[in-house]
Design a protein around this nucleic acid. Sequence first.
DNA 1: AGAGATAATTACGACTAGCGTAACATCGAC
DNA 2: GTCGATGTTACGCTAGTCGTAATTATCTCT
Lengths: 254, 254
Amino acid sequence: MNDQPPEKNNIVQAVDVCIDVLLNVAKNPDVRLTEIAQNIGESKPRILRMLRTMERRGLVRKSDTGTYRLGTTAIVLGTAASTQVDLVRIANPILEELGQKANETTQLRIIDNGESLCIAKFEPMRDLRVQAMIGRRRPLTAGSYKVLLAYLHPQVQQQMIPDILPKLTNRTITDRAKLILELEKIKRQGFCVSFGEVSEQLVSVSVPVLAFDGSVIAAVNVGAPAFRTQRSDVDRFIVLLKDAASKISARLGW
Amino acid sequence: MNDQPPEKNNIVQAVDVCIDVLLNVAKNPDVRLTEIAQNIGESKPRILRMLRTMERRGLVRKSDTGTYRLGTTAIVLGTAASTQVDLVRIANPILEELGQKANETTQLRIIDNGESLCIAKFEPMRDLRVQAMIGRRRPLTAGSYKVLLAYLHPQVQQQMIPDILPKLTNRTITDRAKLILELEKIKRQGFCVSFGEVSEQLVSVSVPVLAFDGSVIAAVNVGAPAFRTQRSDVDRFIVLLKDAASKISARLGW
DNA sequence: AGAGATAATTACGACTAGCGTAACATCGAC
DNA sequence: GTCGATGTTACGCTAGTCGTAATTATCTCT
């Protein structure tokens, strides 16, 4: 699941594997021992021992049918984490304000492991709205999350862009050169608008949250159904987003 | 921090210690390596290796001043856990409804490691309100959380009650025999009201969430400032609480 | 600013924790 | 009831991991 080069040793393998298990259970609720073991390529006894250890501490819970889910300790950890991670703690109220004003779903995304990862969100009270989910990953090369890529040093940027660009819809950019051009444009204008690049019916607008040195910390995003989003709405979103992003930057101390 | 008897081996110690570390960071944000090490009684190199392993995976994050906090992966895990733990997923909307009606703070608590543990909460929009916190622990013997104790088998009950009862305020019950009597009363009437047993100025009312076999799963709770809570309010809370508790029971499949 | 104290990190040999194999038990399906 | 699959246990061997002790970085106080 994750190991490119032999990877240097200074880490505790058992712990590393156990994190794999945890993430596996998070991603696949009600997964069975055998499944986990083959998902991460380890032996069953090993995984069993780890699950047992984590179960005693309430990190996972084994149902009476033998399937595993995350447990209450994970909830406690997550709640504590939300208040400890500055970015999330600060962004949350701002995301909500932004979401109220735009009356659409908002997200905060960071780069994690070559993908964009949603770490905070707000969904307005509205019958039809874009659904966001903390923990959901998306390619960096599709949709407005490209802003996360646009401000990186060209070298790092190159590494982040895979050889074949995943094609999510027929509007997704699949040509590397074209993507680079797009990234330059994004950097120039300071935002990115995606019309159906990730999902056919959705419009997505993102703006970078920048650190004092101009490096990207995260991206704030508004997602809306295409049918009710006019050009003028997009323009409005951009203004709101830039405001939100600079508030977050400021509150982070810049 | 936790080890009663030598504790049998079938668990992975490294993982167990690493959970200790995680919980320690959760409880003490911005803790340093040395602190963690002595908090849980392990050597520094060992803890360092574990922190490094977890940092690579985003479970913890090391600030540039060398202190540790939980990381984004912990948020992701916690969010996933909230949707995977049936009790919490089901209770959340019910807690909110209850909290809206009572216009006071509501909590869901379970027994965990001989204490009561808050695993879900709702706070109403109100200038002055009781503050609740997911992950906060309280004694089982003080306040309305006694309901969690009341329905246990007498044997188990005895084990849960420590020899000396922690005295949080001067209204806290500190006499064992008196506590037992109180527990019997709670079981008879199906709820527990606490006037300032945990915190001087607070009223707390709890009702048990029962399984089909009459065992306690959790406790639902309303907490309110004493000065604005009349006898009639308490009665109203009890009705609301019983309703909420039975809804949760029902949705859990009973 | 420099000396002393404290904390973080590295290196490495020793040892046992923890791994895998393989046998066994349990469960489900047909 | 038999077969296949999954979960669990036992145990001997090995390498992962631990602690000591030395080293470096960081902080503190005068």
